[in-house]
């Protein structure tokens, strides 16, 4: 009888440890999803507001993309060292959340109205995607590249995923997950808006500090070698 009680006690203890482990694992998954901006409750309004640009400015240079097109061409897409911004949309043929995005692409261009922004859809290579499905889904007018290496180099954590790259500097202006192009547009506007505010704020702060120190436009210390604009004009 005592032995039976001991065995039962040990079994209960093991089960308790198992339950605690499962709860902890579940909490970690939820936390990871939350950090990525994904809301498990499926509330789109909350999901959109949870989208945040995650700038990776100056950390690692994003790469140009080389791969194949659904039609079989071999392509290289210049992402950095260009004058334009590139919105990389990492989509898949097998991802159910991607389907509405693919379908919308047939009738709308999500970057219309965004100056100097180019949309490039990046799927994984032919080894990981259905070629026939991709031919059905890929719009004729959109740039679609199959490049598994790009998913690795950009560290894509979930699908769908979007990365906005500033071509001139090679900075990643913003990145995140979204389930509609409207959310992507919101993400882009927020990312570019934050960046513009940051840039102008920096200039204003610098001007303010210079003015406080008594240095204004035309001040001699701004022109090393005593070549002020007035002197140059003479």
């Amino acid at each position: 009888m005592t032995a039976l009680l001991i065995v039962e006690g040990v079994a209960i203890l093991l089960l308790a440890v198992l339950v605690v482990g499962l709860l902890r694992s579940h909490a970690e998954i939820l936390r990871a999803l939350h950090e990525l901006g994904v809301r498990p409750d499926g509330d789109e309004s909350q999901s959109a507001s949870a989208l945040r640009p995650r700038p990776r400015l100056g950390t690692e240079a994003p790469a140009d993309i080389a791969g194949t097109t659904p039609a079989g061409s071999t392509v290289h897409i210049g992402v950095t060292g260009t004058d334009s911004r590139t919105l990389l949309a990492f989509l898949s043929t097998g991802c159910s959340s991607c389907l509405p995005l693919w379908e919308s692409l047939q009738s709308e261009d999500p970057v219309t109205g965004l100056a100097d922004t180019r949309l490039v859809v990046v799927t994984k290579g032919p080894e990981a995607e259905s070629p026939s499905r991709l031919q059905q889904l890929a719009p004729r007018d959109a740039t679609v590249v199959q490049a598994t290496a790009a998913w690795d180099s950009y560290g894509v954590p979930v699908t769908p995923y979007f990365v906005l790259v500033e071509g001139a500097t090679g900075d990643i202006v913003g990145e995140g997950s979204a389930s509609t192009w409207a959310q992507v547009g919101s993400l882009i506007l927020q990312a570019t808006g934050d960046r513009d505010v940051g840039a102008s704020g920096g200039e204003l702060r610098a001007d303010h500090e210079l003015r406080r120190a008594g240095i204004g436009p035309g001040h001699p210390t701004l022109y090393p070698g005593n070549s002020s604009p007035e002197r140059d004009e003479k």
Binding site: D64, S73, T74, V75, H76, I77, G78, T80
Partner: peptide
């Protein structure tokens, strides 16, 4: 592709078809 090889400079686009 198709027997061609080319170094595409950074920022350039290229396609072989």
């Amino acid at each position: 592709a198709h027997g061609f090889e080319v170094d595409v400079p950074r920022g350039w686009d290229g396609e072989i078809y």
